[in-house]
């Protein structure tokens, strides 16, 4: 069971269809069960009984989640695998001592792989769909796995299976979710 955390401005908003359900569809295709929890609904409690956590993206204008970073402290305390997508990556960066800075990108962009990792295929570069206003600096000790001309596109915690990805994997890069789940979220704990 994977917990999908909806980081958008309101539970049940239109952003759920755009940023959460496409990730749920990838999990469904992978044969993984999931549960969607809005970030205001104690997702840390739901995550106690799951195998992994995915923090989903938000609309470009939706950055309200940045106002209460302390409400995500449960992520720093869990030993579960975590994948943060776009807004989710920003939360992971803040929790680990990185910063969120301006770095808008919209549309298809070339992403270069900079380090080998179980979640990243052995390719030099790929095209990815970007939809973000902000970017992240690298938290101390973290490893950059991929980057575009504009910003860090993937990073990971050096020890725990905690990954951030700035592009949107539902567009042509579903492998991000699939490889994360295969590598760290199975078999059931």
């Amino acid at each position: 069971m994977i917990v999908l955390v909806d980081l958008s401005y309101r539970e049940g908003s239109l952003a759920r269809e755009e940023f959460v359900l496409p990730i749920a569809a990838i999990l469904n295709a992978e044969g993984s069960e999931y549960r969607i929890v809005h970030h205001t609904r104690s997702p840390g409690e739901a995550a106690r009984e799951c195998d992994g956590i995915i923090l989903c993206g938000t609309p470009v204008m939706d950055n309200g989640f940045l106002e209460t970073p302390q409400s995500f402290s449960w992520i720093a305390e869990t030993d579960l695998p975590v994948l943060g997508i776009c807004a989710g990556m920003e939360i992971l960066a803040l929790l680990a001592g990185g910063r969120v800075v301006s770095g808008p990108e919209i549309g298809m962009t070339e992403v270069r792989v900079t380090a080998g990792d179980p979640v990243v295929p052995a390719i030099r570069s790929f095209e990815a769909y970007e939809l973000h206003e902000n970017a992240c600096t690298l938290p101390p000790g973290f490893v950059t796995l991929a980057e575009s001309d504009r910003c860090i596109q993937m990073f990971r915690d050096p020890v725990r299976p905690v990954y951030g990805v700035m592009f949107h994997p539902e567009v042509r890069n579903e492998w991000v979710v699939g490889r994360f789940v295969s590598a760290f979220c199975r078999p059931s704990r």
């Binding site: 239109l14 952003a15 269809e17 755009e18 359900l21 496409p22 569809a25 609309p59 470009v60 204008m61 939706d62 808008p104 919209i106 549309g107 298809m108 769909y129 939809l131 206003e133 539902e170 567009v171």
Partner: peptide
């Protein structure tokens, strides 16, 4: 992506929210 990214840019330039509720449905 062609349609969505262009409209997303237009909205961002105007500080308008952009929603695509059928995205990858």
């Amino acid at each position: 992506v062609y349609q969505a990214s262009r409209i997303q840019r237009l909205c961002r330039d105007r500080s308008l929210w952009c929603f695509n509720p059928l995205w990858h449905t």
